[in-house]
Design a protein around this nucleic acid. Structure first.
Lengths: 348, 348
DNA sequence: ATAAAATATGCAACCGATTGCATATTTTAT
DNA sequence: ATAAAATATGCAATCGGTTGCATATTTTAT
């Protein structure tokens, strides 16, 4: 049974009558240390239950092997898929992950960004909170040349690296599909258009309408917080409209699913009376009845992409590396909630 | 514009013609430092853009202000709710959170437990992987008196603190409710019964059958991995049964939702022909049609409870504190998928 | 006015690993 | 046998804070 005490290289050095330097080098598999000595060191370290002290090492080497991640919330399918992707790559490369959730509050985002700095993370990955408009809290990272990358909800500035999907195109595709299916009055329910994701989807929606000769009617645009409550309110509003809209494009599957269910309960036939397209391809979208058409949003891949990019930044000493924007493929998935007739872009 | 250099207390000391000790104490708001001096120190620190170095501090103080969390996977509604709860409490108490996902692999769980030890986390919170049977990797935490707590999927050992729900009672309640609704042949689809959560739900299911004079039929018990694929296979198996089961208790809402949808497509009326109860109260359960009865599983609260308990362990120097098991309330929520007639325990 | 107490600051060791440089030892070449 | 080269190990400074103890300064009490 080994001791209760935490073993350091000094303990190993004493036991083997060697200097701490040799132990340190031995454990790092440094070629300057004799093979036999090395073996002895490894064996003794194991036997004594040695674990290196991350802090002493970090203090000396000035890097922490830790990546900070700030997301708006942890309990979301999309976010957790992104995190799973980040975690996979990060841990595979021997890094750890420090996570905070801003809870959509810009204030907390600022605070946690500071904490990440304190903790000397080697890099930071951020998905912006809904209401962040000032980005000064990220400047220290730029100043200290600490890689800072954004994913999904990003800063509209070419100087930052980011991973996104083409939200504008996706919004366009979703809307065009609804038009293809014969919709003429299409409601769009979306989130805070301050953020690129919702703003761009809206732009895509409007462009699709214009391109197909349908006037943009601001009565049909609902900017909400995409919660269940908002969904219910939106349904009430829709049901009061005259004439009733015949298409619905919602920026989020959960919200779309709630609308679908409530509209159905109100006697509206989906997709005959109203065709619906969601966004995200959450598991939710396969469970509604009828199944929800949606935009496939590759959360895990986005996480993997941003993490891979970050790891590359860290291994390349090449500080001159330019900021880059990676756009991952998103695609319309047509399911029952919007499928009225065979038309151009059909996928199942 | 401040410098590019990272500022240390030595820089502040030099600028103010004070010793680093005074700066250190000043920044800690130590009463030994004169109020005016303190003010000067804080102002200068701000002005110079000082950020304390976590590692130097940790190395000296021998604690890291970091809590490790190991979960089976990040992309799950339940887990992300638990994490959100943990994060809330942990960050509120000034700690950071280091997260790893074992991806249900015992091997990775062992590896990440070691990493957490290396990183000298002040405490560790674990939800066990599906196939972990040997728990020796946790012994170093016990040996070094580092608080180790489990949540949801736990070790069956009174010496460890944990936060759980009464899975056995919940299984009993779900099954009894189905029996109340007139079900006689109830299929139970569950996960790996090596883990307490699935084992106990199964035990509750069996006890309810026995208590109501219904024989336990092992043909009706499906031990699966609760994925979509398993759900589909289970449905095929159910449809081949003769006579058809009239009740279905599934240990997971997503899996239950898939079953519900497929059974409905096969022409089975829910709940008339087959009543269904899920588990978790995922958002999913409100979206199915008919809405899914389920067990409300307070993920966020469980996270908050386990984190609060951990923080208490850390602030009490009292090492003698006994291991405790916290059982949070879980409850049956009856929705349309199982509601045939008014009966004893009705909740909406 | 002087001693005692309270307050404020500094010195220097320490946490545990890393690493440039110096030194000791062994091997190889002449 | 001796010098040169290669190999192996050690010394000591360093990373940036923290803290016990000593010392200097000011305040209070007698």
């Amino acid at each position: 049974m080994s001791q209760d005490k935490i073993i350091t290289i000094y303990d190993i050095a004493e036991k083997l009558k060697l200097s701490p330097s040799t132990i340190s080098r031995g454990l790092q598999n440094n070629t300057a240390v004799n093979a036999k000595t090395k073996k002895k060191i490894f064996d003794t370290a194991n036997e004594m239950g040695y674990r290196f002290n991350t802090f002493a090492r970090n203090l000396r080497t000035q890097n922490t092997n830790t990546i900070g991640v700030i997301v708006p919330r942890l309990n979301s399918y999309f976010i957790s898929a992104v995190l799973a992707g980040i975690e996979k790559v990060i841990n595979g490369a021997g890094y750890n992950m420090l996570i905070s959730q801003s809870l959509e509050s810009s204030e907390k985002e600022v605070e946690y960004t500071k904490t990440m700095m304190h903790n000397r993370v080697d890099g930071l990955i951020v998905t912006l909170a809904a209401d962040t408009t000032n980005f000064d809290h990220f400047l220290p990272f730029v100043k200290h040349h600490i890689p800072l990358l954004f994913v999904d909800r990003v800063i509209d500035d070419e100087n930052y690296s980011k991973v996104v999907i083409d939200n504008s195109k996706s919004g366009y595709d979703a809307t065009t599909h609804l038009i293809d299916q014969g919709c003429k009055r299409i409601v769009h329910i979306t989130g805070n258009t301050l953020r690129n994701v919702y703003r761009d989807r809206k732009l895509g929606y409007e462009k699709a309408l214009i391109d197909h000769g349908i006037p943009v009617d601001h009565e049909l645009l609902f900017e909400t917080d995409l919660t269940e409550v908002s969904a219910l309110k939106s349904v009430v509003k829709i049901l009061k409209m005259n004439p009733l809209p015949d298409g619905l494009f919602v920026s989020n599957d959960f919200c779309a699913a709630i609308c679908l269910k409530k509209l159905k309960q109100a006697g509206i036939k989906i997709p005959e009376d109203m065709a619906i397209v969601g966004f995200n391809n959450d598991t939710t979208s396969r469970i509604t009845d009828p199944a929800l058409s949606t935009i496939n949003y590759p959360g895990q891949e986005m996480g993997e992409a941003v993490a891979t990019n970050l790891i590359n930044c860290l291994s390349n000493k090449d500080i001159s590396a330019k900021a880059q924007t990676i756009v991952l493929k998103s695609e319309l998935i047509v399911r029952e909630s919007s499928f009225r007739r065979e038309h151009k872009p059909i996928k199942l």
